[in-house]
Write a protein that binds this DNA or RNA. Sequence first.
RNA 1: GCGAGUAUAGUCUAGCCUGGUAGGACGCGGGCUUCCCAAGCCUGAAAGUCGGGUUCAAAUCCCGGUACUCGCACCA
Length: 493
Amino acid sequence: MNSEDLFALAKKRGFFAPAAEIYGGISGIYDYGHIGALIKRKFENLWILYFTLPNNFHFLDCSTILPEKPLVASGHASLFNDILVGCQKCGIYYRADVLLNDLGIKVSEGANTEEINKIIREKKIKCPKCKSYLSEAKAFNMMFDIYLGPEHLEKGYLRPETAQSIYLNFYREFNILRKKLPLGLATIGKAYRNEISPRQGLYRMRELVQAELQIFFDPETWKVNLELFKDMLINVVMYENGEQERITINEMINKYNIPEFYAYHVAFVDYFYENIIGVPSEKLRFFEKGGDSKAFYNKIHMDVEVDVESWGGFKEIGGIHYRGDYDLTAHSKGSKQDLSIESNGKKIIPNVLELSFGVDRNIWMLMDIFFNKNDERTFLKLKPYIAPYIAAVLPLQNDEALEKKASSIYNLLKVKFNIETDTSGSIGRRYARMDEIGVPFCITVDYETINKESNNYDTVTIRFRDDKKQIRLPIIELEKFILAQLEPNLLPK
RNA sequence: GCGAGUAUAGUCUAGCCUGGUAGGACGCGGGCUUCCCAAGCCUGAAAGUCGGGUUCAAAUCCCGGUACUCGCACCA
């Protein structure tokens, strides 16, 4: 499916749509509709369940507004701040530091717009493409700044990532939780980036949802259970050779010198996507970044990539980042509070392994890879536990007696599960509508259900989304049946 | 942010060149029919991105804004 078709389906069926659409929309900002909101919530709940499975891993919920200081300490206030110069004639914008460095002129990292403009004037720098004069340099910060209080004197920012919120809570949580490492702190929440040019649907957004797990650990003592995933084959593209290959975590460790804890978590993430979400293995890979494309604070950096047709190939939907002690060291300095802790008889600043995911990208990805279309019909093959509704209760026909029975089953189940019902159109049309939003089962009330003479009295048919097959089940067994469908296999046997 | 293109019901589209009653399909609502996969019949609601100009008259011609798509650039 291409990007336009996916977006059209999303709007038509209530997955998501541009925010403020009746005013023309606003690029990079989206609202989830009644179907998308359910899928997103279920994805998030599943994510929390899985990523806080290990002992001493917990979930936090943090503010989206941060004061200026922590973002100065983390480097965002300066590094998120690009100085751009534009060419007046051809309209191209350049990052000033990159442009000048390319011309062999050294620019200090903290250079401000005045310094840049001075250099450009003195050295008579012109547009490298058309040789015209360049416009005044402008600071462009990816962060949205806000001003607090009635006088708007206190500067803050909408956070550009959720990670910082966790680092700011580390010390307190560590102490409350009996000072044990490793400590995992996860969160899901909004982050904001003023992208110049948001594109490709939910891929690059100005307001986005991140799901992040930050694991704080002592690299000298952390032992992971390599046995758990030892036979798993994982698609990787290692920086060292640049070729995609399928290897075990032991090969990753021995051949590429990847630390055990890191390789283990590659498998941990792989298991989530392949076995729980259901991404086919050939569509999932881990792409190691190095050189210029690796963020400076990362010691090891892999992108979690999924082959998404509507995005034109493998695209990043998450990342596994070994950030060393960069973050807590920065916040120790910035806050002037010693964030070091005692581990194994020594004072250390804990290291951080970050598992980071873009929730919106994941929702788009789910729609893309689980969308099935053939001549006959369209259906969204989501796992039952992330489907918006687990089932729909449908009367076979527009018939008062059938509708009454269907309604009573619907009322029985909807207090326990997300259940839909629909009485308009023919039964085939209703199955089709449910297929398109990914409802895995339809519970159909027919004349046998209400016929006391029939052997099938008080039974219903269950119609399966994926193969259209039907089984008959007593109404009293519906709850048990549904519960069994809702359980993911959280870890390998 | 620059350049090019595009903008008609929920969706896809006809009409625009050559100004004069906005038409169709799918979808949606109501009704009939129908004992399991978007069937059929009747019926209904629903549209020219916004602002200005030219004109007796603008979806149509002109100018401007906005949004989207693509390219450039950006993406710690």
